[in-house]
Every structure is written in structure tokens, then in C-alpha cells.
């Protein structure tokens, strides 16, 4: 295996609750190589999103244990100031809902310039030129015109392209994409997934794709890590994962997807997972 870009070891995340601590992630370990796409999959509440947030330092009140090293440097427990100074191999994140990730009262151009100037000391003019370049790279039509527009003017797919451009402004070594296409239509989803994979290949960037959609995983990932109740249940390269899943929960997840019904005859019954995480009645 190639040397890791990200090494997560025994990551635990807990939240203080009225009585004791609620554990969201328990002793999770995984690696991502440069240029690799690792899919973190599981159902709502399995801990996949908080794993991503912890790597970004976006869980200030959580109790976080273990370690996560990016290119050898610890990223857990950094203060915001240390994190900003942390040059060389930053992590950027793209969220599910692009509208809440964008500032509604700043133009697209102003948001990009801010992100670029936070990354490195360049003049406004240089930053503006680079902002245009980033919009071109994420293939937004009429990029020059978009610079002066506000997020509400854009479609969901265009907004997600802007969010990806903002992430690229920091020249990340690792991009965490948390359900980046879940809110999008299927043709736009295909376009955004292709864009993410292309950008990854151009830059040698690694991608941590957080999703509940196993078909998206099958279409994009190099490796798959399944989480359930805060723990890893299975990790495999993508082909063996889908052809020979080892854990019964993984098999259940794959089988529970709706199947095309046969031309004639009855509809196949979908296998139902027991203990799906629904609250006990």
C-alpha cells in the first residue's frame, strides 16, 4: 500500500448529554492514500458525518480521542488559529446543502476572493483572477458574470460547483465531501461526481466521500468503509466489497436497495434489515 496521506487511529467522538456522554464514534481507524477515494458509508446517525467534521475541527464541544495525522501532522485538537497557520496540506470540506454553505449576502466573487486570500497573501486583483480561474475549472457557464451574482440566483447544481470552487481555493490535499450530491437531481449528480473525480485526478487530491448511497459508492470509490453505530463494520476495496461483502450488515444494505421488477410475475420482496436503528416502539 502506498504511504498514507491521512492516518486516523482509534478516533473516538463523544458528546456531553444530560446523563453522561453519548458516544458517536468509537475507536475508528482508517487510512487514505494520496489520490485515493475512500467512501465512508452508513445510515443516518452512524457517525460518518461527525467523523468528517472532527477532521475539520468543526466539533469544538465534542470529546475527541485518538489521532488523525495528515501528511504526518496531527490535525485533531488544533485551535482555529493553529489550523489556519497549518500550511501545506490542508483539508477542505463540501457539504450536502450548498445553500447553507454559502453566504447569502456576499457575491460569489467576494466569497472566493476571501477564501483565496485566507490561503495565501495575494492582491485583490490576483485573487479575483484566480477566482475566475476556479469557476472555469468547476465548469460554471458564464463565469465572469457569476462572480458578481449572489447564491440565490444559482441552481442547486451551480451552487454546489461554487462550493467546490471555494474548497479548491485552499488547494486541499484532502477533500471531504459529505453527501455532496444527495440534494441534487440524478443528471446533475452525475455531472458533479464526474467533476469531483476529475479535479481529484488533476491535483492528486484524495477524496473522503461520505454518503448513504451505495450506488454512488460503487460508481466512484476505490475503497469502502462501512460504519454502523459509530464503529467500522467492514473495509474493503470496492470490487470485492460489492461482489463478496463480508459483514451481514453490508450484505443487508446492498440487498435492501429497490430492485427492478421482472417484466412478468410478482414484484420481488425487498429484504428488510432488522434493527435498522429505528427507535424501539
Amino acid at each position: 500500500m502506498s504511504p498514507s496521506l491521512l492516518e486516523v487511529r482509534e478516533l473516538s467522538i463523544g458528546f456531553a448529554a444530560a446523563r453522561g456522554v453519548v458516544s458517536a464514534v468509537e475507536r475508528l481507524s482508517f487510512d487514505i492514500a494520496p489520490g485515493e477515494t475512500l467512501a465512508l458509508v452508513g445510515e443516518s446517525g452512524c457517525g460518518k458525518t461527525v467523523t468528517g467534521l472532527s477532521l475539520m475541527g468543526l466539533l469544538p464541544s465534542a470529546r475527541i480521542g485518538g489521532s488523525a495525522r495528515l501528511a504526518g501532522q496531527e490535525v485533531l485538537g488544533l485551535t482555529p488559529r493553529q489550523r489556519r497557520k497549518h500550511r501545506g496540506a490542508p483539508i477542505a470540506m463540501v457539504f450536502q446543502d450548498p445553500l447553507t454553505s454559502l453566504n447569502p449576502v456576499m457575491t460569489i466573487g467576494a466569497q472566493l476572493v476571501e477564501a483565496i486570500r485566507a490561503d495565501r497573501p495575494v492582491s485583490r486583483r490576483e485573487a479575483a483572477d484566480y477566482a475566475l480561474h476556479l469557476l472555469e475549472r468547476v465548469r460554471i457557464p458564464a463565469p465572469r458574470q457569476r462572480l458578481g451574482e449572489y447564491p440565490h440566483r444559482l441552481s442547486g447544481g451551480m451552487r454546489q460547483r461554487v462550493v467546490i470552487a471555494l474548497a479548491l481555493a485552499q488547494r486541499p490535499a484532502l477533500l471531504i465531501a459529505d453527501e455532496p450530491t444527495t440534494a441534487l437531481d440524478v443528471t446533475i449528480q452525475a455531472q458533479i461526481l464526474q467533476l469531483l473525480l476529475e479535479l481529484k485526478n488533476e491535483n492528486g487530491m484524495a477524496l473522503l466521500l461520505i454518503t448513504h448511497d451505495l450506488a454512488v459508492v460503487s460508481e466512484t470509490a476505490d475503497r469502502v468503509l462501512v460504519m454502523r453505530h459509530g464503529q467500522a463494520v467492514e473495509e474493503q476495496p470496492v470490487i470485492p466489497f460489492f461482489e463478496a461483502p463480508r459483514h451481514p450488515y453490508s450484505r443487508g444494505l446492498i440487498a435492501a436497495r429497490p430492485q427492478p421488477r421482472p417484466r412478468f410475475g410478482p414484484r420481488p420482496r425487498l429484504p428488510e434489515l432488522v434493527d435498522s436503528g429505528e427507535f424501539a416502539g
Binding site: 441552481s155 449528480q189 452525475a190 464526474q194 476529475e198 448511497d213 466512484t220 470490487i239 460489492f242 446492498i254
Partner: peptide, 27 residues
């Protein structure tokens, strides 16, 4: 046809979105 071609499929040997033409543009 474009809609169905964009639907992700579980078949990692044959269906990888990066290698497939996808309809351009938006509604």
C-alpha cells in the same frame, strides 16, 4: 436515455461514472 444513463448502478467493474458520457446542462 440520458436520465437512465445518469442513474448510479451497483456494478463496480462495468459502471464507473468517470468513464461514462453524461448529459450536459441543466433543466
Amino acid at each position: 436515455q440520458a436520465l437512465l444513463a445518469a442513474v448510479p448502478v451497483i456494478s463496480p467493474r462495468t459502471h464507473r461514472i468517470a468513464n461514462r458520457p453524461v448529459v450536459t446542462g441543466e433543466l
